[in-house]
Design a protein around this nucleic acid. Structure first.
Lengths: 146, 146
DNA sequence: AGAGATAATGAGAATCATTATCGCTGACTG
DNA sequence: CAGTCAGCGATAATGATTCTCATTATCTCT
């Protein structure tokens, strides 16, 4: 499992004249095992360090930056003072998130109800390249509903 | 002009047992004169310093934090490594933005087409408190259309 | 007006996340 | 087998923001 994701990254690395290294592989595995989550660099660093204790923070940042540049990782901020990284199976560029203001968990919403809005925007002369929708609230668990 | 906004802030300051000071007034005036824009702390600092040269950066940050806490200022990040502040006339909590990836200008969209989406979300047990929608693209000016 | 209490300020240090620098290593090239 | 160079880890540097602390301004009570 995860072959697909790894192969896609390998492919992109080659295209960019970059090599797969043990460090990059370790970061990739962590990202892959946490697909769907929106991790901070520190969370990723700690998880990677667990399986490769000598890895440095800088390498993790470099790798995240590299992967983001390759288009296999999405780097975004959710009104916090830091970035979060989301490993994406596809080049989807539609991000819909639910962020719980209590526990901070970020869930994803696979809907795309914004087409009519985008059409209106395009009519104003603004060329839409991407969009991000974040809904803030309290998740079922924090409300005691689950 | 701007009486309304100033009065609302004064009211909230009193409610919070805080005082209006020359520094806070200077920040408020700058915010008010730039309503609709999404300024960085530094931009605000420079504009305030222009009319009050001895003011310190820390005071500006404290004031922004205070105003945000009073609910008269919205603090948000747009996938940058810093926050932007938007002075709001009302307690609206629906934010729709257009950000140009070329010039960085952020425009606002006064639409609210997300009700059906919110209903779906609420059905899943997630209590919606607020949401933010950002559309990335190129503005008419940067495309040479305007 | 004056004294004391308290809130706010300015300067600069501290912090946090992130990025840049630098010398070293280790894998390919010729 | 020497040379090159991407990638590495450690650490310094940076940029934005927050904290600390001594000083100043404001408010209250007299």
């Amino acid at each position: 499992m995860g072959e697909m994701a790894v192969n896609r990254v390998l492919e992109r690395l080659q295209q960019a004249n970059c090599k797969m290294t043990p460090q990059r592989m370790a970061v990739l595995q962590v990202l892959e095992e946490n697909q769907g989550r929106h991790l901070t660099a520190e969370q990723i660093f700690l998880m990677v360090k667990h399986r490769m204790p000598l890895i440095g923070m800088a390498t993790v940042y470099r790798t995240l930056e590299l992967f983001a540049g390759l288009g296999v990782l999405n780097k975004a901020s959710f009104d916090e003072a830091r970035f979060r990284y989301e490993f994406g199976e596809e080049d989807r560029h539609r991000h819909h998130h639910l962020m719980c203001v209590e526990c901070g968990e970020i869930a994803e919403l696979e809907e795309d109800l914004l087409h009519s809005l985008e059409r209106q925007v395009e009519e104003s002369g603004f060329q839409v390249l991407d969009h991000a929708l974040v809904i803030y609230g309290r998740c079922a668990r924090c409300r005691g509903l689950a």
